[in-house]
Each structure stands twice: as C-alpha cells, then as structure tokens.
Write a protein that binds this DNA or RNA. Structure first.
Length: 551
RNA sequence: GCCCCAGUAGCUCAAUGGAUAGAGCAGCACCCUUCUAAGGUGAAGGUUGCAGGUUCGACUCCUGCCUGGGGUACCA
C-alpha cells in the first residue's frame, strides 16, 4: 500500500519504481537505501518530508526520517493492528493473485528403488517439500513429483544378484534390507568377477525389451520399495502429489530420440548416440549397446512435465553432484526449443557425507533415516522424562520433537557445501532448534488455555504495548519473507523468521505477565500472543513441523 | 588438466550489493515462592582463506592464488 501510494504521489523516486526494503534493527519498518536516494538526485531531508506528506492522511505512518543516508519509514500502531488482524483472520491474506495462473513443478525426494532411505535423501525431501509448501501458500499452482529411480543398469545388477544368491520368499520378509544386502554382495563379487557386470547389463537390456522374467522381478522390487517409502513419508509428514518413476517414461523415450534426430541434434560417437554441447561434455542419449541412460529418461520426463502442466518453472531439488547433468539437460532442452515458456531451476544442495567420505549404498556406508529418527526420539524422550514426566503421549511427542530437530537442521541452512554427518549436529534439542520452536508454540498454547480458563468468554482486543512492538514487527514480516524465500528457493529464510519470532516472544514472556486478574487487561495482552501462535503455526505448517500444544 | 560448489567467532552455521557481519553450541557472570528454565539477561569472542580490482557502499560482484568437496561419455 505504501509503495503504491509513493509511486502514485511521487511518480517513483528516480523516475522508476520505488523499492521499499525491510528496515534493519531499530530503523523503522521500511526504508529506502542510499543508492536509491542518490539516484533520485534529491536531498534526503526534503525527500523524507515529501514522502511523509504523501503518506499523511493514510494513517499508516508515524514518521519518516532521514538517517545515516537512508530514509526510514516508521509505521503507526494502527497499521500494526490492521496487519496483524489480517494475518490472524484472513487465511488467503498471503496469497498473491499474480501467481494464480502460474504452475510450478517440484522434483524432490526421488529415492532409488531397492535401497534403504538414508539420511542422504533428507535434504531433498525436507527442503523440497518446504519449498513446495511456500510456493503454494503465496498462490502458485504446485505439482510435486517424486521421480523415483526405478530404472537403469542397477536393476540388471539387482536381478542378477536375486537370481544368483536370493530367495524371493526370504526377501519378501524384509525386502529393503535383503535387497540392499544383495546389491552390496553384487559389487563385492563383481570386483572379483568382471563378467557379472556384463551379465547385469544384459539383464537390464532384457528389462527394457520387456522380458517377462525380468519384469516380474523388477515389479516386485518396485512394490516392496514403494511401500517402504510410503511408510517413511508418513513418519516425516511428507506428501508428494505423484510418483512418476523413471520407468514411467520408458515408452516415451523413442519420441524424444526421434525429435532429437528430426532436429539434427543426434550424433553417433564411439558407437553411442550423443548430443554435442558447447563448453561441456556431450550428453549421452544412448549407450553403444542401445540401452538408454539417465539423460534420456530425464529428457522424456522434462517433456512430459512441460506438456502436461505447462509450468512456468520446474525446480529440481537434487544433490549438487548432479549439477553438470542438469546443466546438460537444460542445454539439450534449449536446443530442442522446449524452454520458451518454462524455466529450469537447479536447486542443488550439498551432500551429506561421512567422515570416511561419500555415502555409498554399494559399500554399505550409509546412515539410515530410521536410525537417525530413532536416536532423535530417544534423546527427546530422555528430556521429557526429566522436564515434564507427566506429559501425555510421551512417545509420540518425543517422535515429533525428534523429527522437528532433524528437519530444522536441514531447513535452517541453505548451504550448498557438504555436510559431514553426525548425530550431535543434526539432533539439536535446544537453542536455535526445532524443539525450541515447538516449545515456544506450546507456551502460546498454554497461555491460551489459561486465558480461556480464567476469563471465560472474554474477547481478545486489538492492543499493543510498546514492549510488544518488536514482536509485532517480526510477525508482520511473514508475507515479505515468504516472497523472498520462494524467489530463491530458500526455506531457511522462513525458518529464520520463526526463530526470531520465538526468541522475541520468549524474551517478552520473561518480561511481561499476560494473564492477569483483570479480564479486560488480559484480553488486551493476549492479542500479541494469539498473533504469535497463529504465525508460528502457519510457519510450522509450511516447514512441516508438528504443532504441539504441550511439550 | 578443465568445470562446479564451499571457505565467516574455538565448533556448527546465518546474512535479495546496503546501516554496527548475526545466531546456536562450548566457556564465563547472573535469573525459577509468579502464565512450561527445551527458557531469559549480560559480558567475552571477527584482518569474512590470501592478494588485487569494481562500487557512494563488498561476506556478497570481477581477476589471480591457497585449501576442502564434487563432477568430468556409455552409473544415477
């Protein structure tokens, strides 16, 4: 509103648009930075006065000051009331109508069949889901796709291993563990006997040629795995719109290859089919034995997504080690003319590593997600026994607290650099952590119970003491933070806001007493508590953190 | 060799080119007869890997170097 008013009244500051930034610290609510003021060629004092008079009468602004080269705009209390009431009461408040006709596709989680769900999949899954939720919240149409790794040479290996050393009935009892064991055994044996790799390649070729035996074994592996993944997602509170594994695109590969041929992009080189690219290695479309590759299937998937959803953007949440692959994918798609209305975003994240190096399912060097969750839950339970032994549902609370700790560890960083795994690092239960946020929320919920109990039927009244202003300022930032977080796919900005809100709320809680003898006063005091609970709750929903009324 | 990513407090990490580089942990000094101490308050802790450059303004952009990680044609 302020921005519009300024642009209208002043015709923009420097002829163009007014750029309002969120002011830092105690410097008001919004500001114009020195660059903008300089560009306008106007004296900063005079400009401040001009802005002030343009905004006078709106009731929104208390003062406009020229400070340290900036122009800072301080909002009135009325503006705070209006904003907070909107946030609390209007569910659609955060939605931006400009986005309602834009679809964004999110590719995230995407684990591989027949492999256990390791902590390595966590970042893609957690960050991907949060990013999806954030975009949805501000009004985009969203499609989440779980691009399961259910096709490729490793299935040849798996089939060979099952046939040689496995018993289907035995595997069915504990599929993931058994398949994983067989997969590892394959690689051990293949080191001694090169011919196994050749055998595996042949079995994958058979699979692609729809050999009945190969298909049956493969289907079993897929079913077992999907069941397992579903169980994990349930625990994590992750909901992905659709599972479309690589195999889904099997019958669409030839179409892509034809199109490449038609557009004269396909070349033969050393027996393989490739697309040559500028400044990077060529993209391999077909192996010399005629089998397809990751690239082939990703191209087919990309085309399918563009045709089906007509998205303005496709965001890939995958490991940073795949950067080159996606650069190639984008380059090929561009050559094919697919990207005129669709933008590809590679939201790569650093890898979770072990002290000893990269995690590897082949060598059995992984930390399983279940073990991590188990450990987190155990640690949370210990603290509950210590601090709140009367808590109901201790087990499920401990689980939710443990999971929030794990998720927050991923959500609070946006780092591309690798992470060396350690339980202590990921399971933080105090300080800037998931459980700290939950604790703060539970304090709000507890206050609410007390308020309703003590002052039955009392209505909350819009009111802000000066001491609550700092907190109110943070709460109303949720809209701007969501926009900014979505823009660069950085859910950590939202996590950071949640932390700052919780921190400020806790400081206020120690200083002020909310529920007092007088009903009227309590009703006024409770305004900021309700707003805090609402905003924190909203952020929890978006980040996938469980709201616990008691902790 | 070439390409990509990272290097910020003792440790783990924040910071759309903007104000005094911020948190947590560890350590130090405090605060529970009062709404949940998984909390709060205070002090201490920095040549943002190194050297240049661009800019009114650089952790952020550019160049070179150092260190770590990843990638680099028939794995995904």
């Amino acid at each position: 509103m302020i921005k519009e008013k300024l642009e209208e009244a002043l015709g923009g500051i420097a002829g163009g648009k007014v750029i309002l930034e969120i002011a830092k610290g105690e410097f008001g609510d919004f500001c114009l930075n020195p660059g903008q003021i300089k560009e306008s060629g106007q004296n900063s004092e005079e400009l401040a006065a001009k802005i002030k008079s343009a905004l006078d009468g709106s009731g929104l602004v208390k003062e406009v000051k020229s400070e340290a080269g900036y122009i800072n705009i301080y909002l009135s209390k009325q503006a705070y009331f209006d904003e907070l009431e909107r946030i609390v009461k209007d569910e659609s408040y955060l939605k931006n109508n400009d986005y309602q006709n834009q679809t964004i596709v999110f590719d995230y989680s995407s684990p591989n069949i027949a492999k256990p769900f390791s902590v390595g999949h966590l970042r893609s899954t957690i960050i991907g889901q949060a990013n999806y939720n954030i975009h949805e919240a501000i009004g985009y149409k969203t499609v989440g796709i779980n691009h399961i790794g259910d096709w490729g040479t490793q299935f040849g290996k798996l089939i060979v291993a099952i046939k040689k050393w496995g018993v289907v009935e035995e595997i069915a009892k504990n599929p993931i563990k058994e398949l994983n064991r067989l997969y590892q055994r394959f690689h051990e044996e293949a080191e001694k006997d090169e011919s196994l790799n050749e055998e595996a390649r042949q079995w994958f070729k058979k699979l692609e040629d729809a050999d009945a035996e190969a298909l049956e074994l493969w289907q079993k592996c897929v079913d077992w795995s999907l069941e397992e993944f579903e169980r994990i997602y349930q625990i994590l509170g992750v909901k992905i719109d659709e599972v479309k594994g690589e195999s889904f695109y099997e019958d669409k590969l030839e179409g892509v290859i034809d199109e490449l041929k038609q557009k004269n992009l396909l070349k033969e080189s050393e027996g393989a089919q490739i697309v040559e690219l500028e400044k990077m290695p060529p993209a391999l479309i077909k192996k010399s034995d005629g089998a397809t590759l990751y690239m082939t299937r990703d191209l087919a998937a990309l085309k399918h997504r563009i045709e089906t959803y007509k998205p303005s953007r496709i965001i890939y949440h995958v490991g940073g080690d795949q950067a080159l692959h996606f650069k190639q994918l984008e380059a090929v798609a561009k050559k094919l003319g697919w990207l005129e209305k669709t933008e590809i975003v590679f939201a790569g994240h650093g890898l979770m590593r072990l002290k000893s190096g990269k995690m590897s399912t082949r060598r059995g060097q992984v930390v399983l997600l279940e073990d991590l969750i188990g450990e987190a839950k155990e640690r949370a339970l210990k603290i509950i026994e210590e601090k709140n032994p009367d808590l109901e549902n201790k087990e499920s609370a401990a689980q939710q607290i443990g999971i929030s700790a794990i998720k927050y560890a991923d959500l609070s960083t946006n780092r591309r650099s690798d992470v060396v795994f350690s339980f202590d690092k990921i399971i933080s239960l105090e300080g800037n952590s998931g459980p700290y946020l939950q604790y703060s929320y539970a304090r709000c919920a507890s206050l609410k119970r007390k308020f309703e109990q003590k002052h039955k039927g009392a209505n909350i009244q819009a009111h802000l003491d000066d001491s609550a202003l700092k907190l109110a300022k943070l709460l109303k930032q949720i809209g701007a933070v969501l926009e900014s977080a979505a823009k660069i796919s950085a859910p950590n900005q939202l996590a950071d806001l949640a932390y700052r809100i919780a921190n400020e709320f806790n400081a206020l809680y120690e200083k002020e007493r909310f529920i007092v003898g007088d009903a009227e006063q309590s009703s006024k005091n409770f305004f900021i508590v309700e707003a805090t609970q609402k905003v924190l709750g909203k952020i929890f929903d978006l980040l996938g953190i469980e709201k616990l009324d008691e902790i």
